[in-house]
Design a binder for these strands. Sequence first.
DNA 1: CTTCTTAATAGTCACTCTGACTATAAAGGG
DNA 2: CCCTTTATAGTCAGAGTGACTATTAAGAAG
Lengths: 258, 258
Amino acid sequence: MTTPAPEGYDPHAYAPFAVTVDLAVFTVREARLHVLLVERGQEPFRGRWALPGGFLLPRESADDAARRELAEETGLGPGTVGALHLEQLRTYTGPDRDPRMRVVSVAYAALLPDLPEPRGGGDAASARWWDADAVGPLAFDHDTILADARDRIGAKLEYSCLATAFCPAEFTLGELQQVYETVWGVELDRPNFRRKVLSAPGFVQPVGGPPRRTGGRGKPAALYRAGDATALHPPLLRPPRTDASPSSSSSATEGHDR
Amino acid sequence: MTTPAPEGYDPHAYAPFAVTVDLAVFTVREARLHVLLVERGQEPFRGRWALPGGFLLPRESADDAARRELAEETGLGPGTVGALHLEQLRTYTGPDRDPRMRVVSVAYAALLPDLPEPRGGGDAASARWWDADAVGPLAFDHDTILADARDRIGAKLEYSCLATAFCPAEFTLGELQQVYETVWGVELDRPNFRRKVLSAPGFVQPVGGPPRRTGGRGKPAALYRAGDATALHPPLLRPPRTDASPSSSSSATEGHDR
DNA sequence: CTTCTTAATAGTCACTCTGACTATAAAGGG
DNA sequence: CCCTTTATAGTCAGAGTGACTATTAAGAAG
């Protein structure tokens, strides 16, 4: 918008586009990063798996559409969906990304705690969690979107409090560390991780009283809740890669991202 | 795209959108951050200033459209435009952001060195640089886009080699420091800045031989070229704000950004 | 041709943060 | 009762940082 076309303004002089949202919905489950995919029921890419998503309604923003689609695909209530972390990633506009028509897609990343079995109602009968390292080729350019989403999530863990979005309301520092280790694909030193998390103001706050986690072996851990900070000071930097590691390949035209 | 609508797939069942790119083109001039704006020649917002931009052509990606518009607005040759830094920021999709029709806009940020007088041909007769702190209310939601762009640029200076995009091919460390100080709105210690820049591998590389900058007073400075690194290790962190400073207000649905 | 001013560059020092460790505490399993 | 497991506490050397001081090399002022 903004600038009229050279020949003057006429909306109908421009080809119409379809606009959609695509969602990269992540969770950490059994120390693996998982992503929610849906199986396509028709051409193109019938039978292939894809990121959930859908068209914008006529008077709907992309953020609203993303939350609506997320609620539909996961079966979570609007209240739950309204609370979780949803972040616009990037918009994909390649003219041939959908063979049927011109479609631009606004991609979002969403982070969920490990829910019992989130898939439910909605229009995606065949939605399921996949290990993010074991997804075959996806429909459209969704491999690219997924790789970009993983890059972004990993980068944001460094300087934001995003990691708590993968955890339930109350969690131990061990669980939080597991999130970092899973997303980054590295092992972290436990005492050092603890020191950094506790020294970052507003990252986590201890749950009052003497509550401690039961169930596992080993000494019970103290429980924490997400703090009120959104940025992380000082940042929790990812250790430099020492050798070749299973790093998802980036793809976008623009390089580094964060 | 991706998931068909509940009632099955029919492209024409969905309202068509116009898709545009909007450009926040920055340069540093006389120790002030400047942004390129165009004056609108027709309604809506006739006479108001706006970010340059325009519609996507039928078979054009948003990246291509952004480069094309940039070349048109600045009058720079395609070769020059192809080389400079252009980065997708975020997509704005509010249903009422253009009163005429439904328009979603993919926003880009571009960084230029201080060129003699870049505005030239193209369809924007009345394009000019504005001090980024002195822009009145812009057309559409461009105030929001501009504020988001400034936030993003400032954040990226910390951990990327982006700052050299504001400098000519050869520059002194003083000029590079000026970029940081201008974008962040702070003063930096010169010896410390120098130490950090030179210790970051691949950020800058000295120009061979004994060339030194002439013209100003004071001891001549050594010249450097942008290095081949794209990320900055270790990062050059912005000093924490000590008090109220002229910080551009953010606006996006999502908070912190980097 | 001094002397002043300006800016670049070199170097110092205390403080903080970090990574790599070691040690201790508190649970369950045999 | 010992062994394993996990959480938590603490130590220590090295890197990085902010705040300085000192020196060098140019143009400008007198």
